[in-house]
Every structure is written in C-alpha cells, then in structure tokens.
Design a protein around this nucleic acid. Structure first.
Length: 535
DNA sequence: CAATACACCG
C-alpha cells in the first residue's frame, strides 16, 4: 500500500519490522525501489540478500530487478540478470522477456533486443513491440523504429496509446511533420486520438513541427487536459514567439483548477522571454516563489535570459548572487549569450567571466567554445576569437556543422554553409545573388560582425551570404513561386545577419517564411519576425 | 515490462 502511495521510507519501515520475508515481500520492496529510482547498486544488493536467504526468485522478482536497471541500463548487469533468468527457467514469461528487451534497449544493445524479440514470436504483446520501438528511438534509429511500426500495423498486434505516444514524441524531436501527421491519421483510424496522453503528444508534435495552428486545434478539442497538455500548449506558443497567447493559456490553466508546476513556470518565463515581456516575467517569478514553488536553477536561468534580452546586465549580476546553489553551465551560457547581444559597457567583463566559468565547468562541450568565440567576435576582439577557435581544436571536441533543410514533394533537401553539392547548385546560387541584390535595394546591409573569422570586409559578406538557411530559401524559390509559406529547419541557432536578411526576404517576395532553429520558430512576414528580434 | 511537458538540448 505504501509502495503505491510512493511513501518509500514507510515501506522500508514495515519491511524491516517483519519477522521473516517471503518472495512476495522481497518483490514488493524491489518494486518500490524501482519506482523510486533508487540507485541500481542498492536494488542489486537487495536481490543478493534475497538469494542469500535461500528463496527462489519468480517472474515478478525479475521484472522488478530489470525495472530497477532500466533508467540507465548497464549492459554487463543486464546480461548477468539475463543469465540468472535463464538459469531459473523464467524466460518463457512474457513480462520478464519484455523487461529484458527494454533493458537491452536502454543499454544500447539492439542486436540482443532483436534477437530476444524474434525468439518471442507467438507470445509478443503490445508492450514487446513498444519496448523494441522505443529502443530504436532511444538509440537514434528513427528509421528502424518507423519500419517496426509498419510491421506492427501489418501484424496481428494492434497499436495502442503507448505506441502513438512513443512515435509522436520521436517525430516531435526531429520535427518530422509528415510522419507525425501520418501517425495522427492512424490514431484516428484506431480511435486512439482521444487519449489524453496521445493528445498531449499531438499538441507537442504539431508545435515542434511548426504547425502551431494544428497544435491549438487539437488542444481546444480535448475533453480532458492534464498538466502535460497545458504545459505543452504553453511552451508551444512560447516557442513560436506567441508569448501573449502562452500567457492567456496559463491564465486559463489557473482558472480551470489545474496546478501549475515547476515545468509550467519554466514555460511561462520562457514565453515572457521570447515575447520580450521582461517585467511581466519578473512578476511571474515572484508569483511562483509566493505560490510555494521553490525556484530551481532552470528558473533562474530563465530570469537571466529575460534580463539579458532587456540588456540589464547589472540586474543579472544581482540575480546571480541570489541563486542559492552554485551557478552551473546553463547559467553561464545564458549570461554569455546575454553579454553577446547587449550593448552595455559591462558586457566585456561579465562575458569574460562567463566564458571562463563555462569552459572550466564544461570543457568537453563544443557548444561552449562556439559561444565563447561568437562572443569575442561580436565584441570585435579577434585575437580572443582565434584563441577560442584554437581551443576547440585543442580540446578535440567536435562541433556540429550548421545545417538547414526543407521538405518538398520529392523529399528532404539539406544544405550546409557554402554547399555546392546539390544537383541544382548553379540555379540556387544565381537565385540567391538576385535575391541578395533585391534586399540590398530594399535597405538590407550585411551584418558582418556575424562572420566568425577575422577577414577582409568583402570576404565576410560572401561567407555570410552562403549560410545554409539562405541557400535553403533560395532553393525553395527556384522550385515554387506559389504563395504557401516556406518552411525551413535549421539545427543551430540562426545568426543575426540571416535573421535580418530573412525579414527583408519575406518582404520582397511577399511570402511568409517559417524558420525553425535550435531554439524556437521564427515567423517572418512583411519584413517582420514573430520574435520581435528577441531570440 | 512500454507513454506525453521545460531548459540554448545531445
């Protein structure tokens, strides 16, 4: 009973007070440990004690033990448990097999997963399929996961709510709109779309795939909402720069009687930040503290982000002092970005401190070197930029190349900066040069401070003009002249120059451009962006 | 035994 209520210490109290333990009592306490994410070593210890007491483990024992390993499975441990399972002849049990599939998946051993799964033919259930599918996704094999979904659909196993939630989540994380819509259609056909988890996953998927309109449609049609649904919708609007709508939903959430949690406040603060509503954000931060929700380091990071957008560096210093814990890499990254974008004279010193702390705390993260070098480049200190660049080489960290992609009828087209590998390269570059001439006539001036190397002015302009997102937009224009919005995805943050250029482009071509970068969505229309140049 | 939200993410 205490286990079901999540009262871990009470469970142990009762367990320890028992004169003797049978298999059921051991199983129960192991179940409690798995649910409360106790350290793996403790669960293994309890299992050993049980074995030592001379009892024989049963199916439930193994399922609970494997569940304890599951959160961050260790392959060696999983294999050992597997061996013990085989010794006890428990392998014919569906739940134990499924737990093993899941355990191998989390350890990254998909070969063993597939092996086990194929041996289970005849006694597979939805959980077996879902474990395999989520295993593929967990290990980054989206393609195999989708193949598996297809196989599942054509097997005699029906997909269930979990299957949809798993796959929709994967579509959301790679912004695969078309796949997500297919899943939505299957869901409707299977009459699973009215499950609150599936619907929340749909809201999130549509918002992350750029269709905030569909996201809000699904959200409004929901008959029941839980905290995930509210949080998905709020963060969805925030991500699209629709801060006021996000705050409207937040108000509605409070009126509906749902309880905003710490995730809600991260979303709300980030909504204020994305919309440039600095004072309102600070009010909400106070409201959270008054409402008895203890601010986490993420909330402080949001507040610093908020102040950074308003260029209030002195206030940032104040808030850093107020953080009750030691500022982590997230905080310093946010501070560094704030300094990069500010015009305040304080930015040099504060930015220096932030970049020093950051590289000390996380020397292995390539993103930090890029941020440091961008900061120095933006402040015109080329010697330091060169040093930061050299440090990337020295630290042997691999930075991800900037990539943009678009999905047209004939598939996905990907571009990197200066890319000449596309079969239509010639037309794309011609189109781009015409486009740049047009926007220059409209008043665009290349912002060469965003070219990262210390080059002659002219070369910088050339480097900027071949950024991947500019190539992508030129490519779309070689293909279609209709009025539908142009949708571009980018893996990194959009640079200031591309952002400015896109504002002009939306104006001269009279089309809406929706650009998703690593942070959020930008809706460009008539020379303006939904982020209001806060991003 | 499988599932949904945040955070400049991995």
């Amino acid at each position: 009973m205490y286990g079901e209520c999540g009262a871990r210490s009470e469970c142990w109290e009762v367990f320890n007070s028992m004169a003797e333990h049978d298999v059921v009592s051991w199983n129960s306490i192991m179940g409690v440990m798995a649910n409360s994410q106790a350290p793996i070593s403790e669960s293994v210890e309890v299992f050993s004690n049980m074995m030592r007491s001379g009892l024989t483990p049963n199916e439930v024992t193994f399922v609970n033990l494997l569940a304890a390993l599951s959160p961050l499975s260790v392959l060696e441990l999983g294999k050992q448990v597997h061996a013990v399972v085989l010794k006890h002849g428990a392998i014919e049990d569906k739940a134990v097999d499924n737990a093993l599939v899941s355990c191998y998946a989390k350890s990254g051993d998909m070969d063993s997963c597939e092996q086990l799964f194929s041996e289970m033919s005849g006694r597979r259930d939805a959980v077996s399929w879902n474990s395999l599918i989520s295993g593929y996704i967990y290990n980054g094999h989206l393609h195999e996961a989708l193949d598996c979904v297809w196989l599942m659909m054509h097997s005699d196993q029906m997909m269930d709510c979990c299957t949809f939630s798993i796959v929709l989540n994967a579509c959301a994380s790679v912004a695969a709109l078309e796949r997500g819509m297919e899943m939505h259609a299957f869901g409707i056909r299977s009459q699973l779309e009215s499950d609150v988890v599936v619907e929340s996953a749909l809201v999130d998927m549509y918002s992350k795939c750029g269709r905030i309109d569909y996201a809000s449609k699904v959200f409004n049609s929901m008959s029941q909402k839980n905290e995930f649904s509210w949080n998905s919708m709020i963060s969805g609007y925030a991500r699209h720069g629709l801060g006021r709508k996000a705050l409207d939903i937040f108000e509605e959430m409070q009126q509906s009687g749902a309880n905003p949690d710490n995730v809600t406040f991260v979303s709300v603060l980030s909504a204020c930040s994305h919309a440039g509503l600095v004072d309102r954000g600070l009010d909400y931060f106070e409201m959270m503290e008054d409402g008895g929700i203890l601010p986490q380091i993420e909330h402080y990071s949001c507040v610093i982000d908020l102040l950074g957008r308003a260029g209030k560096l002195t206030k940032i210093r104040e808030y850093i002092k107020r953080i009750p814990m030691k500022p982590n890499a997230l905080i310093w990254r946010t501070v560094l970005v704030a300094c990069q974008q500010s015009n305040d004279s304080e930015r040099i010193d504060l930015g220096r401190e932030a970049s020093r702390m950051l590289l000390e705390l996380e020397p292995q993260n390539p993103v930090n070197y890029v941020l440091a070098s961008n900061f120095y480049a933006a402040t015109g200190r080329w010697e330091d930029t060169v040093k930061a660049r050299a440090a990337i080489e020295g630290a042997a960290v691999k930075k991800e190349a900037g990539r943009s992609w678009v999905t047209l009828g004939d598939g996905v087209h990907t571009f990197i900066a200066g890319d000449r590998s596309h079969p239509n390269t010639k037309e794309i570059y011609e189109k781009l040069s015409v486009l740049i001439q047009k926007i220059r006539n409209a008043g665009y001036v290349p912002m060469t401070e965003f070219a990262l190397y210390d080059l002659e002015e002219e070369n910088k302009e050339e480097l900027l003009s071949y950024h991947s997102e500019k190539l992508a937009v030129a490519f779309v224009l070689t293909r279609s002249s209709s009025g539908v919005p142009i949708r571009i995805m980018k893996n990194l943050r959009v640079c200031g120059d591309c952002h400015m250029a896109f504002r002009y482009i939306s104006q001269v071509i009279g089309r809406q451009i929706i650009l998703r970068d690593s942070i959020r969505f930008h809706h460009f229309e008539d020379g303006n962006c939904s982020c209001g140049d806060y991003w």
